[in-house]
């Protein structure tokens, strides 16, 4: 049986500059941050990032990795706006495909189903039609003759998602309240990489019930065990969002000096150093 375990660095070594990469989660919730951090340290560039955007997009923009962002929103949830994303947009530093958030779902679904587009009412009449030059409408061939948005398939070269549990073959489990669209990201991608809080024997996956098993090994190319890997985003029920850290991230992103210090402390070295720094912060606060 295939053992798909790998490290964040091995995931990044399979990626190339110019790729279209989908990132799961939603806003500042259950983001595959340990793999994102490995991407930040890499020499990859010119990436197209597809995401229900949170700090993943902000950080990748800040480190100059993004050529184009495809999203419905970029938000940190408890803090509405990500200053790094704002700065990139306001400088005109990135290209964007801004869709209604439901259109992103349809684009991923079309990619999974290998159809060129799916029709939607969402987008009609809005500036989504104006600012996305390639976007077309399609007329219903039936008697209603409605003209709808033809949301193009969003095929991904790779998908990155973070789940609560997985086995070494790539069956992955969410234990929180919402899968978000992680299964669609995986199925829309040529290669999907799942990080998880803990790799467990397959036999342990059944306990939480079959509806928690929506990421199946046929979708998955690699599995990374990454405890606290979604930090500072939430990973319910294993842990909530680290609000203090997120606030520090936002303050740093607004101030070049603080940002340099933030990068030095948290992002310059590897994941183990990141987690050590986070743990040191935690001890300092509770002391």
């Amino acid at each position: 049986m295939a053992d798909k375990r790998m490290t964040e660095s091995q995931v990044v070594s399979e990626l190339r500059s110019g790729m279209t990469i989908g990132i799961g989660g939603w806003g500042s919730r259950r983001k595959p941050m340990s793999i994102v951090r490995a991407l930040l340290r890499s020499d990859l560039r010119d990436l197209t990032i597809v995401s229900y955007g949170g700090p993943d997009i902000g950080l990748l923009c800040a480190m100059g990795k993004v050529k184009r962002a495809v999203y419905g929103f970029v938000s940190l949830d408890s803090i509405p706006l990500d200053p790094n994303f704002q700065a990139a947009r306001q400088a005109g530093a990135i290209e964007v495909t801004e869709y209604d958030e439901g259109m992103v779902q349809l684009g991923l679904l079309a990619a999974q189903w290998r159809v060129p587009f799916l029709p939607a009412r969402a987008g009609l009449g809005s500036d989504v039609m104006r600012v996305n030059a390639g976007l077309r409408t399609v007329a219903s061939p039936y008697a209603d003759a409605e003209e709808l948005v033809a949301v193009p398939a969003i095929r991904l070269d790779a998908a990155l998602v973070h789940l609560n549990r997985a086995d070494e073959r790539g069956n992955a489990q969410y234990l929180g309240p919402d899968l978000y669209f992680d299964d669609l990201f995986c199925a829309a991608a040529d290669r999907a990489y799942v990080s998880c809080e803990r790799i467990v024997p397959t036999a342990e996956l059944a306990a939480a019930g079959p509806t928690s098993l929506r990421i199946s090994r046929w979708m998955v190319a690699g599995v990374v065990e990454a405890p606290n890997g979604a930090h500072f985003t939430s990973c319910a029920p294993d842990y909530g969002r680290d609000e203090a850290f997120q606030a520090r991230y936002v303050r740093a992103a607004k101030d070049p000096q603080l940002w340099t210090a933030f990068v030095d402390r948290y992002l310059a070295s590897d994941e183990a150093h990141y987690q050590d720094a986070v743990e040191a912060d935690r001890i300092a606060v509770s002391a």
Partner: peptide
């Protein structure tokens, strides 16, 4: 709710259109 100014180089980036296009026409 998306951005203030020219969409392609906004003076202030806001959330993005989110679900507003789909909400309003549905």
């Amino acid at each position: 709710i998306s951005a203030i100014g020219d969409f392609f180089k906004p003076t202030r980036q806001l959330l993005g259109v989110r679900g507003a296009p789909g909400n309003t026409v549905n």
